[in-house]
Simulated assay, not measured.
Amino acid sequence: MPRVRANGLELEYDTFGDPANPPLVLVMGLGAQMITWETGFCELLASHGFHVVRFDNRDVGLSSYLDELGVPEVAAVASGQVAAPYLLADLADDAVGLFDALGFAKAHVVGASMGGMIVQQLAIDHPERLLSVTSIMSTTGDPSVGRPSPAALAALTRQPAATREESIEQSVAAYRMTGSPGYPATDESLREKAARGYDRALHPEGTFRQMAAVLASGDRTERLRDVRLPFAVVHGDADPLVNVSGGKATAAAVPDAELVLLPGMGHDLPEPLWPEIVETIVRTTARA
């Protein structure tokens, strides 16, 4: 896959569809590689007339790791005793660097989970570079909304496994904890997905730095009130990792945002819901 130099980092990316079409950039979540945007989902978006780009955020996948910054104590960052190595604003700047490297004056953006937080930050910091925003299964940074269930939080903050097989089983257990109860995946498909991610790249230290960025970046609610872009919020009503209150709060903060609540959807992108999610994205881009 290709790689660009952006914001002082190397970012791994790939594309779908005709480069002459309007660019649509997909931003993934905490510790999640770009392949979490499934190929079929990207191809479905591209079939609607977009040049689709997915990429690895800093500190994950095949993009640059910032190990020289150390691994922060997440609890100390949350309490304000220790500064985070970087913030969501820096991750948003990475995306703008990607735009520059690929020659995009403006782009549609879609973010999932932490990626939703990043595209919200993009709308705050770089609105002139965006055509539309879709925030999926995300939240505003207000600690009173979008809170995870205790079990989902435990799955998120578990210690890294020691072996490939342990890592795969750990990932399957996490998927089971946070996935969509209305659209359960098979154990075989979950193991295949976990193995693919493990074999491509595993970097848990980067996940902790990304987590620190989320915790240290604060509440975006008031700044979201100034966003004047076509904006949609998609959230599952059964999300245990980012409670649906986070999505509702995001839509309430952004003027004229569309809120789409999907019954039975948890903290993943189940294939049966791809058409409805893509339809929402297409509808939002049409408002640009």
Score class of each variant (00 low, 15 high):
residue 1 M to Q: 11
residue 1 M to K: 11
residue 2 P to C: 10
residue 3 R to E: 14
residue 4 V to R: 09
residue 9 L to P: 00
residue 9 L to I: 03
residue 13 Y to F: 15
residue 19 P to G: 10
residue 22 P to C: 01
residue 25 V to N: 00
residue 30 L to E: 05
residue 31 G to E: 03
residue 31 G to C: 07
residue 34 M to D: 01
residue 36 T to F: 08
residue 39 T to K: 14
residue 40 G to V: 08
residue 41 F to T: 03
residue 41 F to C: 04
residue 46 A to V: 10
residue 47 S to T: 06
residue 51 H to E: 07
residue 52 V to F: 03
residue 54 R to F: 04
residue 60 V to R: 04
residue 62 L to S: 13
residue 65 Y to C: 11
residue 66 L to E: 09
residue 68 E to N: 11
residue 70 G to Y: 10
residue 71 V to Q: 04
residue 72 P to W: 03
residue 76 A to F: 03
residue 78 A to K: 12
residue 79 S to P: 00
residue 79 S to D: 15
residue 84 A to R: 02
residue 88 L to N: 03
residue 88 L to S: 02
residue 90 D to I: 02
residue 98 L to N: 04
residue 98 L to A: 10
residue 98 L to F: 07
residue 99 F to D: 03
residue 101 A to V: 12
residue 103 G to P: 12
residue 106 K to W: 01
residue 109 V to G: 03
residue 112 A to M: 13
residue 114 M to A: 06
residue 118 I to K: 01
residue 123 A to D: 04
residue 126 H to W: 02
residue 131 L to D: 12
residue 133 V to I: 13
residue 140 T to A: 06
residue 142 D to I: 06
residue 144 S to H: 12
residue 146 G to V: 09
residue 149 S to I: 01
residue 150 P to F: 04
residue 150 P to C: 08
residue 157 T to E: 12
residue 158 R to S: 15
residue 160 P to G: 09
residue 160 P to T: 08
residue 162 A to C: 00
residue 166 E to H: 06
residue 167 S to K: 00
residue 168 I to C: 08
residue 168 I to W: 01
residue 171 S to G: 14
residue 175 Y to M: 15
residue 177 M to S: 06
residue 184 P to W: 11
residue 184 P to Y: 11
residue 184 P to V: 13
residue 185 A to H: 05
residue 186 T to C: 10
residue 187 D to N: 12
residue 191 R to W: 08
residue 192 E to Q: 14
residue 195 A to I: 06
residue 196 R to V: 12
residue 196 R to I: 09
residue 198 Y to E: 12
residue 198 Y to Q: 09
residue 200 R to C: 07
residue 203 H to M: 12
residue 205 E to V: 01
residue 205 E to P: 10
residue 208 F to M: 14
residue 211 M to I: 06
residue 214 V to H: 01
residue 214 V to A: 06
residue 215 L to K: 04
residue 217 S to M: 08
residue 218 G to M: 08
residue 221 T to V: 13
residue 221 T to D: 04
residue 221 T to M: 05
residue 222 E to T: 14
residue 222 E to P: 02
residue 224 L to N: 02
residue 224 L to D: 05
residue 225 R to W: 01
residue 225 R to V: 02
residue 231 F to A: 04
residue 231 F to V: 08
residue 231 F to I: 11
residue 234 V to W: 03
residue 237 D to N: 14
residue 239 D to Q: 05
residue 241 L to W: 00
residue 242 V to Y: 00
residue 244 V to C: 07
residue 248 K to L: 07
residue 249 A to S: 14
residue 250 T to K: 00
residue 251 A to E: 07
residue 254 V to A: 05
residue 258 E to M: 11
residue 258 E to L: 13
residue 259 L to W: 04
residue 259 L to G: 05
residue 259 L to C: 06
residue 262 L to W: 01
residue 263 P to S: 15
residue 264 G to W: 06
residue 264 G to C: 11
residue 266 G to Y: 04
residue 268 D to H: 03
residue 271 E to P: 00
residue 271 E to K: 12
residue 274 W to G: 08
residue 275 P to S: 06
residue 276 E to G: 02
residue 279 E to C: 00
residue 281 I to H: 04
residue 283 R to L: 07
residue 286 A to G: 06
